[in-house]
Design a protein around this nucleic acid. Structure first.
Length: 593
RNA sequence: GCAUCCAUAGCUCAGCUGGAUAGAGCAACGGUUUUCUAAACCGUAGGUCAUAGGUUCGAAUCCUAUUGGGUGUACCA
């Protein structure tokens, strides 16, 4: 039982004895004591006033007296307005460090038996990944790791949008203007090569539209009548009917894209347990539609189209099957949801998808709920904001997208330049240097994207490079490397406890309290699916260490063995937490830099 | 129109289920290296928490309205 729990039970006891009232536990609000006051734990007594029928100050004093008397480690208290500040025995904190934090398994949370699926990335196969995808990938990966750290069994899946008119556009353009170009022949990365033809299609299509408009057609007519779009549509039909030549080309070009994606995924450090392909799932969902009709959840209009009426839930009527019997987007998502559940039987299923699809998922989940799917309660749309540039939205057609591969390369290059300028890596081997530049560059990028609350839109300025100082990935990486260097210089011996009566500086006390929060920070971040809150915490830890490090004389030269061991213990715990926390964000921390 | 999200320092962001004088980083200014890595540390300056009401002992946080911005509202995905 930790000190907070002792205080809570004792407070309830106190209210019972002193005021003869039952204080509900929810009314007890504990917080860290602000640094300008004496003490470490504060009880906000305002809610208790209702039970004590006395002023906040008197109530606080009464409780303070009681806790001082009855809780062993409470050694003093002071009252400021309605706040009861408790001072906890020094030895309690030292023993917390000794017994809890120093355990090698500190921070690992036991399995909770929950199975969770996280679907993320979900790219289209007609163009390379851009910064928006990068946010999605990092978020999905990190949330998965976070849930694992919190004790769940996690399945990462990628639902690839590998079919449809968009990929036919690339295929058609390649047929017409590609002259047989392949990644091998041109040295172009596969996804970029296919993306190039997607752009060419768009350019040529626009030309045709202009020509048709000059011939007197309206914009809308021209868009429909342009030969290129007609050919693309014809190609899609051919694909659907299994035309061997089209399928062959489709396979070839998608293959190029996957080779390209694999490289980008590897650089991003993300992975998947299973891939789903829309070419396999796009026909799914018709059974679900039948089921919905049978259950009376859906209804059929005269033309044969199938709908659901969600107006009672504040939404609209929604089409779930076209009049010609073909699927729409939500049809396949209904079917895919069922398929995923049949495959994995998970308790929860997280969809990492941008907030432009908020409405879609609201509808999807509501429909599954109405169909009586027991597992629909576990569905969650992890909705994240767009990545904006100073000029506004990224638009592929206007060439303002920030390409993922370019960005990664730039980050690594910047890391190289900054590191070389500091001149600390002269004794590194070439491989070590390359690895370090990669880790630092990616650390900066990942931390930059992950420290922002997913829900919020994110501003990225390509003109200003991502910072390496302050609240950044490299700052935390540096702190870790510094501790590792310290531990080795001081010949740290792991697992040696120090005397409980050693005196703690204010910073050391704050450090222990902060470090002890790690497990609850993981739990809180997992609960809200927010790597950002974890990132924030890790930064606090790193900042606290640097403060500590500067305040005290060199540990290496410390002659008091107890004190030395104690400070090294604190440093060691800090390094572990930085490493474990950053790992959840998908960021490697170097041993030296 | 309707739905939904967002609005905190010059810029980028924190701020937990309402709690004490709203915090960081960057940028600006000043300081710290004969001592364990200066990608660090310390300090100064910077705020009508979009606006107006309301609930409360207490509101950046909850409610309502307004303003500004994003997104959605397809027999596209």
């Amino acid at each position: 039982m930790n000190i907070e729990q002792h205080i809570v039970t004792a407070t309830i006891e106190a209210v019972k004895k002193l005021y003869h009232q039952d204080l509900p536990e929810a009314q007890i609000s504990l917080q860290d004591t602000r640094s300008e006051f004496e003490g470490q734990i504060t009880i906000v007594v305002f809610p208790v006033v209702r039970f004590s029928k006395k002023s906040p100050e008197v109530t606080a004093s009464d409780l303070g007296e009681y806790l001082l008397e009855h809780v062993e480690d409470v050694v003093a208290f002071n009252v400021v307005k309605g706040f009861l500040n408790l001072s906890i025995n020094n030895s309690y904190w030292v023993s917390l460090l000794n017994t809890e934090l120093l355990k090698p398994e500190f921070g690992t949370i036991a399995a909770n038996g929950k199975k969770v699926m996280v679907e993320y990335s979900s790219p289209n196969t007609n163009k390379p990944l851009h910064l928006g995808h990068v946010r999605n990938n990092l978020l999905g990966y990190s949330v998965s790791e976070l849930l694992k750290a919190n004790g769940s069994e996690v399945f990462k899946v990628n639902l690839v949008n590998d079919r449809g008119i968009h990929i036919c556009k690339s295929m058609l353009a390649w047929q017409k203007w590609g002259n047989g170009e392949t990644p091998l022949s041109s040295g172009l990365k596969g996804d970029h090569l296919v993306g190039k033809y997607y752009v060419i299609f768009d350019k040529e299509y626009k030309k045709e539209i202009e020509t048709l408009k000059l011939q007197g057609q309206t914009e809308d007519e021209a868009k429909k009548n342009a030969p290129l779009i007609k050919q693309a549509q014809a190609m899609l039909l051919a694909w659907e009917s299994g035309d061997a030549e089209v399928i062959d080309l489709w396979k070839t070009m998608n293959g190029w894209v996957y080779e390209g994606f694999d490289v980008t995924y590897k650089n991003l450090g993300v992975d998947f347990d299973k891939y789903y392909y829309e070419s396999n799932t796009y026909l799914l969902g018709k059974d679900t539609v039948e089921e919905g009709l049978a259950k009376g959840v859906f209804f059929k209009k005269e033309d044969g189209s199938v709908w659901i009426d969600l107006t009672a839930d504040g939404l609209d009527q929604k089409l779930v099957l076209r009049a010609d019997g073909t699927s729409v987007y939500i049809t396949q998502d209904l079917g895919t949801a069922q398929m995923k559940y049949d495959d994995f039987g998970m308790d929860e299923s997280i969809y990492v998808v941008g907030n432009e699809q908020d409405y879609h998922f609201k509808v999807l989940f509501l429909i599954l709920d109405k169909l009586g799917k027991s597992w629909s309660k576990g569905l969650y749309h992890l909705s994240y904001g767009m990545v904006d540039l100073p000029s506004g939205k990224m638009k592929s057609r206007e060439g303002t997208v920030v390409d993922a591969d370019d960005l990664i390369a730039e980050m690594v290059l910047t890391a190289r330049q900054k590191t070389e300028a500091l001149g600390k890596v002269d004794n590194f081997s070439e491989e070590e240097k390359e690895q370090l530049y990669y880790n630092i560059g990616m650390g900066a990028l990942k931390y930059f994207l992950l420290k922002v609350e997913p829900k919020k839109r994110l501003l990225f300025d390509p003109a200003e490079s991502i910072d390496f100082q302050g609240n950044t990935g490299p700052f935390i990486q540096y702190t870790h490397a510094r501790i590792k260097s310290l531990l080795s210089k001081a010949e740290f011996k792991q697992g040696v406890q120090v005397d409980n009566y050693i005196s703690l500086s204010e910073t050391e006390l704050e450090m222990i309290i902060l470090l002890a929060k790690y497990p609850s920070e993981i739990a809180a971040a997992a609960k809200s699916f927010s790597p950002a809150s974890l990132a924030n915490y890790i930064y606090e830890v790193a900042k606290m260490f640097n403060k500590f490090y500067h305040e005290i004389p060199p540990i290496v030269k410390e002659e008091d063995e107890q004190l030395k061991q104690h400070r090294l213990n604190l440093s060691w715990v800090t390094a572990n937490i930085l490493k474990a926390g950053m790992r959840i964000l998908g960021i490697a921390v170097p041993e030296r830099m």
